[in-house]
């Protein structure tokens, strides 16, 4: 009996190691749909058709939805796609959608605008990619809009427009109030970066909003969020926890 158990465990370990080394198989795209590589290669202002899975919903307004989506190879930011409120409710994390729109750039952020979409069969939720080591490198931009994580960073003081120091600011210069975007500084290896809690994506009642409001200068934290771009990396953070 012991032999059988040992054999089963050994076999399980072998399979487990094999799975660790396995890379996710890319999606098979429907006819007429671009691969992620084709999307990256497409010219700005050209029409694009992609299939991806909803990872986060930023806002719905005036029958337009702004959504973070991703497939197994990369991410797509869908800005102000035509969307009824009823359809927006169906866009739960993992939902597969086929999007037709135009590849655009706004302050360095590559996005799909003037888009329409249809919901398809399929479900996928991306694991956060640890990009801590890519901070400050050109490599980071290749992961624009992906769900990413940053580990072991230190909260640094932010200065408002009056020169007052704080662990976070409401709006970029401290001109806002509770409910506005939160801006906070975090450092790693002597370099400081500004991260954001985007209030449309994570409002004042969310855990991450409250967690950032509770930060103190010097705290060591791990973070997850979407790698938004605004004249450079401007991650939209969705979770903050004490560093492990």
């Amino acid at each position: 009996m012991k032999r059988i158990i040992a054999l089963v465990m050994a076999a399980a370990m072998i399979f487990a190691f094999a799975a660790c080394g396995e890379k996710e198989e890319p999606d098979v795209k429907s006819e007429g749909v671009m691969t992620y590589a084709e999307y990256v290669a497409a010219a700005l202002d050209s029409e694009v058709v992609i299939e991806a899975y909803v990872q986060g919903k930023q806002s719905w307004w005036d029958n337009k939805a702004t959504i973070y989506t991703q497939d197994k190879e990369g991410a797509y930011f869908i800005y102000n796609a035509a969307c009824s409120e009823e359809d927006y409710a169906k866009l739960t994390p993992g939902t597969k959608i086929k999007v037709t729109g135009y590849k655009s750039e706004w302050s360095g952020e590559i996005e799909i605008t003037d888009a329409t979409f249809v919901i398809e069969e399929g479900n996928y939720i991306a694991k956060a990619l640890d990009v801590t080591s890519m901070l400050g490198t050109a490599e980071l931009e290749k992961h624009q809009n992906e769900f990413v994580s940053f580990k072991g960073m230190t909260v640094e003081a932010s200065k408002d427009a009056d020169g007052n120091e704080a662990a976070f600011l409401y709006n970029w210069d401290g001109s806002g109030e509770k409910g506005n975007d939160l801006y906070f500084n975090v450092s790693l290896n002597g370099q400081t970066y500004t991260f954001t809690v985007e209030s449309y994506l994570c409002g004042q009642d969310t855990d991450v909003y409250k967690a950032v409001e509770a930060l103190k200068v010097g705290d060591k934290i791990d973070m997850e969020g979407f790698l938004y771009w605004y004249n450079g990396a401007n991650p939209h953070i969705t979770s903050v926890t004490a560093a492990k």
């Binding site: 307004w61 005036d62 337009k64 970029w172 975007d181 500004t194 004249n231």
Partner: peptide, 13 residues
């Protein structure tokens, strides 16, 4: 950093 607010509010209004 200023924020991207381009929501067309008129139709909703």
């Amino acid at each position: 950093m200023r924020k991207k607010i381009i929501a067309s509010a008129t139709a909703a209004a």
